[in-house]
């Protein structure tokens, strides 16, 4: 790093690891990105917390594809269990508890299977990103109940898409360099969010949703 802001130097001097500083400064950018996706493009995902945390989980795995693989497996097993547990007629929390337990076991199998296939990178994924991704299943199950399977699956895919965009943004070297050099720039996200919060135009996907109406308006 050829150009480090004095502020960042100060943080490092106080013993905060550089990685932690960068990740914390990245957070405003990632959440602003998610707000932008929701308000302007119309991609909903599971709220703001889930795509943000999945973005950081992706950043924390050694290889992105293993992160995506775990995400997909979690959602897939979550969906299967919805059908499997339907006949049991049990209440919400116990049902989520069973779902979480079985997903945890599935991930364990996946990791050991990866090891058996000589994919040591998979087994090397640390526990926190895995736990984070397992917990998103609660959001998924809630969406399944409220909005149905199809809608929940769409939300999951949207979460994955936003998290991937967030991942590439947060691991973009030029952006990291920029933040290290000018950490104050992060404050721009506040006026951007004020603007997003007052944006009352149509979302991009609504142009698609209302295409028949738009055709008909003169």
């Amino acid at each position: 790093m050829e150009n480090i802001s004095p502020l960042i130097k100060y943080f490092i001097g106080q013993g905060v690891p550089l990685d932690t500083v960068i990740l914390l400064l990245m957070l405003p950018i990632v959440v602003t990105l998610i707000a932008f996706f929701r308000q302007v493009i119309g991609i909903k995902a599971f709220g703001i917390y889930t795509p943000a945390i999945v973005t950081f989980a992706f950043l924390a795995v050694p290889q992105l594809r293993y992160g995506v693989l775990i995400f997909v497996v979690v959602i897939f097993v979550g969906m299967l269990l919805r059908f499997a547990l339907k006949g049991l007629r049990i209440l919400y929390l116990p049902r989520v508890a069973i779902t979480l337990s079985i997903i945890a076991l599935s991930i364990l199998m996946l990791l050991s299977f990866g090891g058996a296939m000589q994919r040591t990178g998979l087994a090397a994924v640390s526990i926190f990103p895995i736990l984070i991704m397992i917990t998103i299943v609660e959001k998924f199950v809630a969406a399944q109940i409220e909005k149905g399977n199809k809608a929940a699956l769409i939300l999951a895919v949207e979460t994955l898409v936003i998290s991937l965009v967030g991942y590439y943004l947060a691991s973009w070297p030029a952006l990291i360099k920029g933040i290290v050099a000018f950490p104050w720039l992060i404050l721009i996200t506040i006026p951007i969010n004020v603007f997003l919060g007052k944006w009352d135009g149509l979302r991009l996907n609504e142009y698609f949703r209302f295409r028949e109406v738009l055709k008909n308006l003169k």
């Binding site: 119309g42 149509l202 738009l214």
Partner: peptide, 18 residues
Amino acid sequence: EIFKNGKKLLGMNARNLD
């Protein structure tokens, strides 16, 4: 034209905010 006509439609943002 599409963006102009879009102003006649009520989107999610405008519904919630306005």
